[in-house]
C-alpha cells in the first residue's frame, strides 16, 4: 500500500514536469491520473488497490457524520422535554476489537450515537463502559449499532 502511494505521487510529480506548470491544481490532475493508471494496472502491482481502503475510510466518516446529526437532534428533543422522566445509568458493552486505535475510534463513535457517552475502557480492553440517558431504550438498539460500527472499523484497519 505504501509503495502504491509513492508511485502515485511520483506519477503526479512527473505530470507536473511534463506539463511544465508547477501549481497545486496540476499536481491534483497528475494525482488523479495516477489513481487511474494504478486502477488499470492493479493486476501487476503487489497488494490490493489502495483506493479500496480509502473508500472504506470515507464510508466510515459518512457513518460518523450521520450518527452525529441524529444524536444532536435527539439531545435537543430531550432538552426541551418538559419533564425529565428518563432513567440514566452505566452499562458495560463487550467488544471484539483489540488494538488501542480501534477501541479509540469505537469509543468516539459510541460517544456520538444518540443517548450514549463512553465513560471508561476496562483494564484488559475487553469492555467499554457507557453512560446512557435512557437505559431501557438504549440496551435494545445498542447491539446492532455496535455491530455496524465494529464491522466498519475492522474493514478499515484489517
Amino acid at each position: 500500500m505504501n509503495l502504491q502511494i509513492v508511485i502515485n505521487i511520483i506519477i503526479a510529480l512527473m505530470w507536473m514536469f511534463l506539463s511544465e506548470s508547477y501549481t497545486f491544481s496540476t499536481f491534483l490532475v497528475g494525482y488523479l491520473l495516477g489513481i487511474l493508471l494504478l486502477f488499470v494496472l492493479q493486476r501487476f502491482i503487489p497488494d490490493s488497490f489502495y483506493m479500496d481502503r480509502v473508500i472504506k475510510v470515507i464510508k466510515l466518516i459518512i457513518l460518523f457524520i450521520k450518527e452525529l446529526t441524529l444524536s444532536n437532534i435527539e439531545i435537543v428533543k430531550l432538552v426541551y422535554k418538559p419533564k425529565l422522566d428518563f432513567e440514566p445509568g452505566i452499562f458495560a458493552l463487550p467488544t471484539e476489537l483489540k488494538s488501542n486505535w480501534e477501541i479509540t475510534i469505537l469509543a468516539n463513535l459510541i460517544s456520538l450515537t444518540p443517548g450514549t457517552l463512553s465513560i471508561a475502557v476496562s483494564e484488559d480492553n475487553s469492555k467499554i463502559y457507557i453512560h446512557a440517558i435512557d437505559i431501557p431504550d438504549v440496551v435494545e438498539s445498542i447491539n446492532d449499532i455496535k455491530e455496524t460500527f465494529e464491522k466498519a472499523i475492522m474493514e478499515v484497519t484489517r
Binding site: L68, L112, H131
Partner: peptide, 20 residues
C-alpha cells in the same frame, strides 16, 4: 442548566456543540 448530573450534562455539551 437543566440536566441533573454531570454525565447527562456532558451528553448535552459534547453532542449539541458539535453540530452547532
Amino acid at each position: 442548566l437543566r440536566f441533573p448530573d454531570i454525565y447527562i450534562r456532558l451528553h448535552a455539551v459534547t453532542k449539541g456543540s458539535t453540530l452547532g
